[in-house]
Amino acid sequence: MKGLSHKTSKKDGERMTDEEFNAVALKYSDSIFRIAFNYCKNRADSDDVVQNVLIKLYNSGKNFESEEHIRNWLIRVAINESKKLLISPFKKHAVPIDELSDKPAFENREQSDLFDAVMNLPKKYRIVVYMYYYEDYSVNEISKMLGANSSTIRTQLSRARNRLRDQLQGVWTDE
């Protein structure tokens, strides 16, 4: 990605160029959306989170040192924006996943079952599982990003795996 694949010469407070911003927006919007979906469980709110995060990115004036730096920053802000949205007075109620029409149309049953099983996990497990299995973050990295103890994350991951294994017998295997 132009201008962000290495340490930039920008100082903090200096906005990225439009070209840089557009490239980041297109590259990371799906990641932000997936993080948000793991919290919100619906497309409309997740898209709102994507917009909020991208606008924050543009206005942040941060000097990102690497691709990894910008990815971590975006994911952390996506988590915060998702939480913020969930605690707003209008979002206090949860909508069960089976009442949603926002589930992707999966081609095979295994994917569909896994998606349902993950969405039925408690929120705290969903985000940890997602960050570990999809974003490839380590337990220590997740603990830093979520501001939690690594032993807590390890426990959550383990409990989530057990739940997935119980729900998805023959699909989710012991590791």
């Binding site: 898209d47 917009q51 699909v171």
Partner: peptide
């Protein structure tokens, strides 16, 4: 399996373009 499953989730292109 996890990556294959969750890669089906995509942000709305319209919303991203709107943000841009």
């Amino acid at each position: 399996l996890f990556k294959q499953t969750f890669s089906e989730l995509h942000a709305s292109e319209d919303k991203v373009m709107e943000a841009i």
